[in-house]
Design a protein around this nucleic acid. Structure first.
Lengths: 207, 207
DNA sequence: GATTGTGAAGAACTTCACAGCC
DNA sequence: GGCTGTGAAGTTCTTCACAATC
């Protein structure tokens, strides 16, 4: 298996999500064109993406949903359960905390952190909640790989630094602040304002 | 001004967000390297991005924060106030509804929609809330350009179709479902599970 | 010395186009 | 006929490298 281009990894991740849904609704086969329509890509792009996988080829007919899902899962290591934690238990943090769907997808929210003892005591959750100063030791002891930052924007970089110290492998930054990390740490930003800006800019360009 | 590449538009949007923060903290100038560090890009990329703007060039010294911000805002049309609406008033929908920061960024949440009359009556918000069947008429009459889908995933495509019928220009899809739209409509997905997957896949590739 | 600006080179990604398969 | 698989072509994006500026 050669190195998969980054955009292909992102699309394959999306295709994987699509295949899960198709499987649940009992659909057995799917074409590159159908996949493309769902993930907003061309059929050629989809086929190329799939060609990076180690899946043995059966040209000429639609993809077998279960098989394709298996190979994406295998090559992108989705079968390995990963642990994440949430830092900052405001509205967004608690919304993510309450979401039940992660487990089913192979992710476990293994801890939540906040600076406020009050919040930690008040919030009802299956997830164990802790004060921020316990962050490093808990991440290390529970082998948490991904940190989801939901703090106020002012605290974002500081939180990221704490995560880096605990040797985190990936960060999802849900604040409006930009956070900088060393090149080897994976980071994605989920910033509603940022998305509104990008959509707005693209709307302008269209005309 | 020539056509700006899409990745450049995304980065310029982020740079704009950064400049806003720098301006607020009283910082007057910034270098391409500093910007790059904040948005996770190289200095060359940052300079290239900026070169697409209509800003007159002053080689040799750091960028003037206010001036750069002005030109990005002008060229990407951030000064035009845009209206958005939220469809689906669950946890995420109401969290976005409650967020105060959009107005300050030139975005107005001009309406919220849900299928449940109970929710519409119970939720306390400055934003006017309506039943879903009013979607099209309100989008048209209030000139809403962007729809933020926060419904359960099963309802996502259906909601998108309704938005398309109302001639929406951009969609931010916050469900785990993939939504397909015609090419001329801008769409971005904010899917926590999807981001976890992508981060997870990239962590695997790193090793 | 440190910075920007930018044509040109290079790298990465997408699409084409058609052989091969069902 | 409609599908996949893929080398090759084409396109887009990023980085280099260095002149110009402060």
């Amino acid at each position: 298996m050669r190195k998969i281009p980054l955009p292909s990894i992102e699309r394959l991740s999306n295709i994987y999500g699509l295949l899960r849904k198709l499987e649940k609704s009992g659909i057995k086969t799917v074409s590159s064109a159908q996949i493309g329509k769902n993930i907003n890509a061309t059929n050629a792009t989809v086929r190329k993406d799939i060609s990076y996988l180690s899946m043995p080829s059966v040209a000429g007919r639609d993809y077998n949903v279960a098989k394709l899902k298996k190979y994406i899962g295998q090559d992108l290591k989705f079968f390995k359960q990963r642990k994440a934690c949430i830092i900052g238990l405001g509205r967004i943090g608690t919304a993510i905390l309450a979401y039940e769907g992660f487990k089913d997808e192979g992710f476990e929210i293994a801890a939540g952190f906040d600076v406020s003892l009050n919040k930690i005591e008040m919030i009802i959750s299956q997830v164990s909640l802790h004060l921020i100063h316990e962050l490093e030791s808990i991440i290390r002891s529970r082998e948490i790989e991904i940190g989801i930052i939901c703090t106020p924007p002012e605290a974002a970089q500081d939180t990221a630094n704490k995560l880096l110290k605990a040797n985190i492998k990936g960060i999802i930054n849900c604040t409006t602040a930009m956070v900088s990390v060393p090149e080897e740490v994976i980071i994605r930003n989920i910033d509603y304002t940022g998305y509104l800006r990008i959509v707005s800019a693209l709307i302008s360009q269209r005309k």
